[in-house]
């Protein structure tokens, strides 16, 4: 799959300045690392249905936390996993993309004081 070199800069939530969201964002971002590892493990053990559930939940939630790019990438992974014939290479690529965005979100997040 041809890919453009992606922007690797830190990613900030659209709601970073929203007082209501500070605590929630902390909680959401603090779990992203574990989620990213979980996806890697699920892929390694080929537990594709569980992986799909994680992708599905991330897709539904991330946009609401101000990370539309994360939602979108999770959506890509979910639809690849939903395909009748799964392409392992593409799934692995989508997981890597998603992990990279998770990583950027973690780097871009400033915890509430």
């Amino acid at each position: 799959m041809p890919t453009q070199p992606t922007d690797q800069g830190p990613l900030t939530s659209q709601f970073a300045g929203d007082a209501d969201m500070l605590e929630l964002l902390d909680m959401f971002v603090s779990e992203l690392g574990a989620r990213s590892e979980q996806m890697r493990d699920l892929l390694a053990s080929r537990r594709m249905d569980d992986l799909r559930t994680v992708a599905h939940q991330l897709k539904g939630a991330a946009g609401g936390y101000g990370y539309p790019m994360l939602s979108q990438a999770a959506g890509v992974l979910e639809s690849q996993l939903a395909a009748p014939v799964r392409d392992l290479g593409e799934v692995a690529h989508a997981v890597a993309e998603l992990q990279s965005i998770c990583d950027r979100a973690i780097r871009g997040h400033r915890p509430a004081a």
């Binding site: 929630l24 939630a61 609401g64």
Partner: peptide, 13 residues
């Protein structure tokens, strides 16, 4: 909703 992220978000919003 089975996603705690979504539930927390709804509650705050």
């Amino acid at each position: 909703d089975d996603s705690p992220d979504v539930v927390r978000l709804l509650q705050v919003r």
